[in-house]
Design a protein around this nucleic acid. Sequence first.
DNA 1: TTGTAGGCGTTATCAT
DNA 2: ATGATAACGCCTACAA
Lengths: 357, 357
Amino acid sequence: MLDEEAGKVPGVSPLGGSRRAARQPSIKDIARLAHVSHPTVSRALQNSPLVNSRTAERIRKIAEQAGYHASAVARGLVTRHSRTIGLVVTTAADPFTSEVFSGIEQAAHDRGYCVFLAESNADPESERKVVQTFAERRVDGIIVTSSRVGALYLPLLSEMMVPIVLVNNQHPGAFVHSVMIRNQEGSRAAANHLIELGHRRIAYLGDQTGYQSDAERCAGYREAQDAAGIVFTPELVVLGDGKPEGGQRAMDQLLALPCPPTAVCCYNDMTALGAMLSIRLHGLRVPEDISVVGFDDLFFASYTQPPLTTVRQPMRRMGQLAMESLFRLMSGDASEIRIKVEAELIVRESTARVRTG
Amino acid sequence: MLDEEAGKVPGVSPLGGSRRAARQPSIKDIARLAHVSHPTVSRALQNSPLVNSRTAERIRKIAEQAGYHASAVARGLVTRHSRTIGLVVTTAADPFTSEVFSGIEQAAHDRGYCVFLAESNADPESERKVVQTFAERRVDGIIVTSSRVGALYLPLLSEMMVPIVLVNNQHPGAFVHSVMIRNQEGSRAAANHLIELGHRRIAYLGDQTGYQSDAERCAGYREAQDAAGIVFTPELVVLGDGKPEGGQRAMDQLLALPCPPTAVCCYNDMTALGAMLSIRLHGLRVPEDISVVGFDDLFFASYTQPPLTTVRQPMRRMGQLAMESLFRLMSGDASEIRIKVEAELIVRESTARVRTG
DNA sequence: TTGTAGGCGTTATCAT
DNA sequence: ATGATAACGCCTACAA
């Protein structure tokens, strides 16, 4: 034993020779340089009160000079948590998703956590792989946002035994913890706004069926009309895909109707973008001929022509809330978290009083 | 020794009792269940030919049932690589950045890599922390995109001894590997397009100074004018901030000029969004009164009113290229990588022949 | 074809 | 205040 130690004294190629690619220095390298044991180095670097403050300072300086960075992977092995969370999204290339991510990342970063961001592309097989990967990486928690994932990988997810928070997801009922926007109230406010402007023939341009947010927003739209005594017209509800292309196609359908609507509630701002293009291409004007309302209040909503009336979701805030909820759960709090955030109607210039006559 | 082993025979609380929170099963748990040694389990799960295929199959089934997921953190400790890369961005809530990310993520995912996405918020201290974090997490490589980071954390970065690839970054000269758009050529094409439409008084609405992409795009703008014999007018070059707000303010400046431009080259599409709003608010029309060109071809460029003429960057592709380059470097290839991708002028309806008289 | 024995770089638990 | 020692869960020799 003593012989082994002797073989490692400084000067005898402390990093194990030079034929291999240079390694990052380990805690033992620092210990050797500082002539202390590695636990002492560990303590010094964690500002433990159990070390002499002078030696602690000396060790820190040496570690700094050596460019030492404690390995989070080794630490994770013993502490059994990785200070890492996984975020599953359908696609990151989406203004809503990336705002939510930004909120999550900030909250995570503030507490020393790192975020794995993975796309599922709405493909079940890919989703399975993502969750599997997160399981292997031993993430401490998972956030899923804007996914249509339902029962698909729910069992896998629960088997991981880490807390999961959903943001605006389908079937949150099956999971325990979620952050959701008040879809129905927001959509109702939008429809009410149109009704107050005198509109009676209002369309709903939705997302694909089976998506819970879409169902709720459609419900809000219907609720407002019911309250105003407007009879529901099934042909005024059409389906898009949550993107401009789908919005454009669906609006084309509406404009092909014998009696087109005078106003449209869109599932989201992306859809509204396409709807407005369709309206222009048909030689009509927004809002003079048709009023348009979006949902989300993405960054471009103030810059469309005309600026888009929409229902604001506090996206970054929702991301932060999701992350903070996850912290609560990760620290052992077992209580159910179901946060509902308020949606706010933002009136701009894409809505106007209905044309009389 | 034998006593210790004897103490671990099945039936004697294999997971170490039930008073602690349930642990994820380890490779030893599976070995015990399958009545084999843990290396055999390891081999079976890696489809090693060194195991009897029947026992391998049996082991896999048991592992599956037990919900076993090999710990990537333990594996990383011994293999010395984490199959993880770090991506540093200024902010993720940006259409350019999120498209690039999407390309990176796909390429990474295809090869079993996970991506840490971290925001620097253009704050030097935050940038330092991000890199430090990546160092601790032992990422196998780093990609930095659209950051203004210069010499600030370069030393830290190089000390990590992992390959780094820059995407459209400032000062790529200091680093070895990069994926860049041909800024100057793209911008020159945009300016030429305006010149061909008869414009002589063309403005450049840039980003903040000191940003390399901005300098190159401005150079392309000047080059085209020089070639056309148009004398450079300093007051026609104004500064934005890469976002709509800055574009709007800068366009206000241009319109306050005694003799405003008849066309504007914008640093990017976000800037163009603000410029077009400013033009509208001044009671002018695009392109009848002023032609506008953007840069990037973000998703909304086809949906602005009028649709935006712009210079396309293949953003996802650039992300993929960056990731593939990183793979090359991570596998030991030491050759310098400097990829230049072509920019493509996309003519839509925000540009028109200059008004005669 | 399988099992045994080390070691990866930390933290935690004992001693001293 | 510090040091020795043992995990953590996996992989990779090497031995059988």
